[in-house]
């Protein structure tokens, strides 16, 4: 007998399912890469005229670089303000829901936070424009009078409140639910075993959180913040409505500054020819920034892989 009894002759039913599934998974993975690639190619081809054009023909008349740099900086500033506000609050709220609040409160509070994420950005924009901006005017005046020596609070303060800081605060509210709900999920996944290990050593609740929960959740928190950053970088409508745009200025409480997404949205309807290429080039720059940010986040997470608890 030379035939191996372990070799089956006919195809078995289980194997077909296996093949279909692995094919579908591979297809989905390839589809994502293709989409990404297609977007990059589209952006690059459409933006090409900008890079070959005479610098004097570009908006501002000094070439693409001096056109894009101020709005890149504006985009980054708006996103950083949003993260600076939303990250600590988001983590604190998530910890409250996962480890401090009684169960009766924790559930509804979680839903409420998730609901924040469901509000369309145009509503946030309108709220920032109609309610938040006017409400912040006295605060900005106080900042200009008392902390005006710091460039970011340089006066005279805007009379409408439609400033970079307002836009950043609106973005923070929009980013908050993303950071909160992702962090909360991660915090809840902390193994009971590790929490009990800390408690059994005589840890207070906060010490238990800082020795067992936060280190475990670190990569998850970074991912949550990066997702939030992605939303803040790309947010168009809210910024377009809230910010009274202008050239690059250091003060966050005056009118001025601009973000890439809002620049594209505000100018796209009337743009054609070279101007259109410019805006698409701006979109390409935003795409690259987001890509770099995500790669940095991956690198930070990977650096601590050995200690992640996954091994």
């Amino acid at each position: 007998m030379t035939t191996n009894a372990l070799k089956s002759s006919g195809p078995s039913a289980g194997r077909a399912g296996d093949k279909i599934f692995s094919g579908a998974a591979l297809g989905a993975g390839v589809l994502i890469l293709l989409t990404l690639f297609a977007v990059a190619v589209f952006l690059f081809i459409q933006a090409l005229p900008t890079f070959t054009a005479d610098p004097a023909e570009i908006s501002g008349g000094a070439g693409f670089f001096s056109y894009i740099l101020p709005i890149v900086i504006g985009t980054v500033i708006a996103a950083l303000i949003a993260l600076a506000i939303a990250t600590p609050i988001g983590i604190a709220v998530a910890l409250f829901i996962s480890h401090y609040a009684p169960r009766r409160i924790a559930g509804p509070l979680g839903y409420l936070i998730d609901l924040l994420a469901a509000i369309p950005s145009v509503i946030y924009g309108a709220w920032g424009y109609l309610v938040l901006a006017p409400a912040l005017v006295p605060g900005y005046q106080w900042l200009a009078e008392n902390l005006g020596f710091i460039p970011i609070f340089g006066g005279p303060a805007s009379q409408t409140g439609k400033t970079m800081l307002t836009a950043g605060i609106v973005l923070a509210v929009m980013v908050l639910p993303i950071i909160t709900s992702l962090s909360r999920e991660i915090f809840l996944q902390t193994p009971k075993l590790h929490e009990e290990a800390a408690l059994a050593l005589g840890a207070t609740r906060w010490e238990m959180i800082s020795t067992a929960v936060l280190p475990f959740a670190r990569p998850g928190i970074i991912s949550a913040v990066m997702l939030g950053l992605g939303r803040a970088l790309g947010e168009t409508m809210a910024v377009a409505l809230v910010l009274s745009t202008g050239g690059l200025i250091p003060s966050l409480i005056q009118s001025g500054n601009q973000t890439i997404a809002a620049e594209i949205a505000l100018n796209f309807p009337e743009a054609f020819g070279l101007r259109l290429a410019e805006l698409i080039a701006a979109g390409l720059v935003l795409f690259v920034i987001t890509l770099i940010v995500n790669m940095i986040a991956r690198a930070i997470i990977a650096r601590h892989k050995e200690f992640s608890g996954a091994n």
């Binding site: 075993l193 590790h194 059994a200 067992a212 992640s308 608890g309 091994n311």
Partner: peptide, 20 residues
């Protein structure tokens, strides 16, 4: 918290802190 710092505990499954 005081009680637990005087009466230590070892668990069924080994649970060193993975991040440390």
């Amino acid at each position: 918290v005081n009680v637990r710092s005087q009466i230590g505990m070892v668990f069924q499954r080994p649970n060193p802190f993975p991040t440390m």
